[in-house]
Design a protein around this nucleic acid. Sequence first.
DNA 1: TAGTAAACGAGACGGTACGTCACGTCTTACC
DNA 2: GGTAAGACGTGACGTACCGTCTCGTTTACTA
Lengths: 197, 197, 197, 197
Amino acid sequence: MGHTSGTPSPRRRSERSRRATLDAVFTLTVQRGYAAVTIEAIAAAAGVGKPTIYRWWPSKGALALEAINDKVGGVLDFPDTGDIAADLTSQLTALVALLNSDFGTVYRGVIAEAQGDPDLSAALRDTVIAPRSRACQDRLAKAVTDGQLRGDVPVRAMVELLYAPLYYRFLLHTDPLSTRQVADQVEWALTGLRPVS
Amino acid sequence: MGHTSGTPSPRRRSERSRRATLDAVFTLTVQRGYAAVTIEAIAAAAGVGKPTIYRWWPSKGALALEAINDKVGGVLDFPDTGDIAADLTSQLTALVALLNSDFGTVYRGVIAEAQGDPDLSAALRDTVIAPRSRACQDRLAKAVTDGQLRGDVPVRAMVELLYAPLYYRFLLHTDPLSTRQVADQVEWALTGLRPVS
Amino acid sequence: MGHTSGTPSPRRRSERSRRATLDAVFTLTVQRGYAAVTIEAIAAAAGVGKPTIYRWWPSKGALALEAINDKVGGVLDFPDTGDIAADLTSQLTALVALLNSDFGTVYRGVIAEAQGDPDLSAALRDTVIAPRSRACQDRLAKAVTDGQLRGDVPVRAMVELLYAPLYYRFLLHTDPLSTRQVADQVEWALTGLRPVS
Amino acid sequence: MGHTSGTPSPRRRSERSRRATLDAVFTLTVQRGYAAVTIEAIAAAAGVGKPTIYRWWPSKGALALEAINDKVGGVLDFPDTGDIAADLTSQLTALVALLNSDFGTVYRGVIAEAQGDPDLSAALRDTVIAPRSRACQDRLAKAVTDGQLRGDVPVRAMVELLYAPLYYRFLLHTDPLSTRQVADQVEWALTGLRPVS
DNA sequence: TAGTAAACGAGACGGTACGTCACGTCTTACC
DNA sequence: GGTAAGACGTGACGTACCGTCTCGTTTACTA
């Protein structure tokens, strides 16, 4: 839907146009906010024709998602120092820094758009969230094996307990995200809210 | 911004138009999805003129937010049976049911729109999230006093640890929200992820 | 076809927009040539929105046709001095002058466009050509009654014999149209149309 | 204008492509109407690359004009039975038949396009109209010499008096062209052109 | 019990962006 | 080297909504 034709052969594709388009999405979104960016403006800023954009991406959301993945694509490995609390803290701190950067502005827009676009939602989950969640789950599983974490809680639930508060603040704007709180939040998630008996 | 004139006197306001408009937003959003609903369609469905809508609401988001608050407005009291785990479970279960209903569709749309609209974001926080968060915080504070929860963790952080995973699934669509998992999730948040020593 | 909706009520129509649009078509066509004029350019030059144009006219051709009729609308009466040759000469001379003016540029464009648009072709025939042809036929019929023209040649054929050479030069650009040749041309045609003495 | 480069050497030119292109123009124009035919569609239908078309023809009009000349190119000789009325009737009847055939559809399109394209207009005049007009003029001149036509009317004007009514109906669609009326029309025109006995 | 001023429905308006189409140019690979 | 295929930048297309602005018409307070 939206494609000019049925997925053209990428052999003759202009890498120059691809790069300029992805860069323009990022720049414009940071400047004006995601919702205010139009495909026309992207095309103009990138020095690219609109049909070229529609030839390769079905929507602004798909374009922005690729821009995001293009920016942070390779970073997938989870640290393993042996200390699960320290590893989680360093990883979550990095995520907070990322969400507070220009990247966060674009990411927020994509998440917003995905609320009304199932295809984009699936792509967002599959290319951004799921891979990182899995990397985290692997590290948590090892911590379980090491005896540092309980074995009777699904690692998927652990991931949510650790990451969800960050997204909560990121998307609902109740409190600003700060890298300084991360260590405490990890600790509270690991220790639980009940008093030490 | 968006108002036809400087805040008209609400004395002569037509309650019939207000009701029809709010109902139309809700119905249309459920039918077509939030992003696909236009103010023109709302006006037509409600049998209302466009200027009437712009006279009373600055944007589709503000309109949808009022429709939401109109739907679940009064429910603000937090149960207190003396058992904090049970109270949290019942409350979170109710929220999950709500998010999985038609209400969730509209709510999702408003949250999405708020990502690019600071006014709407603030209104969403102040009228929907903050009051309920405060009610929960009060109940948690009492549980701290009762010795059921630790006193060295801020209640705001507790609220996030409990609610955030629900919003995480609601907005990122990693896993479906189910009322059956709520009790376990509450338990894990309260107990922590470390093994029982 | 092309209408935004099914013929809106003309009661609230903006006369200012109508005038500005018709004037813009004329001005732009004279400046750039009919084929080079776009509806976007018309809208911009008239200070009018594109949808307003599409609301009231189905195509550029229909718009240009109305501009033409707006320009020369009332002139329909055929002179009658009693001398058919003189009357035809004055009328045809006026037509040649018109075709050689800015009007001719627009008229040519409409005739060209009508070649591929049956609706426009019919409208052109019914609103421009047929009424004037009929007026001429009436005058010719009177000349027949007066004994100045043969009665055994259909007046429609007479009209063609008189007018067609003008259109021939106008559209095929074989020779320039000149007002000075008109009298001779009328004379040559009439020699054949006069009653056998 | 439009040429990819400055007139390539026609020695290596593919006759197969030329033929297929000219045939495609004709077929598509008859099928869809001249205005609706695009160069892309011609290229696709002919199994020819677009640059090949632009290499050899400057515009769709030039292409269609060549297709026309390719179709009726050789027919230039005017009959001479000694009877000018009969010769004119047979020739004009043939033209009417041609204009009412598929050829007429393409021809109409070219004439329309020529209204806004001086180059095409000149080419149309020089390659189609002028040669046939000259052939007719020659025949008429002989008839003058033979004493069948007046000597004081320019043969160019005679040509117009005879041919213009056909083009008038062909382009303005006031009445359908019929081969049966031709003899009468020739007669009416000639009555004026015959020498005063 | 009018008179009147507001809010109202309807919808035309000047705009902006949409997603598509065809243009004419250019590049690549083949023959 | 001419050719087919087709991606490219460009720009106009006709449409959908935007938010504003008249219009007459209710409607409900005032006098």
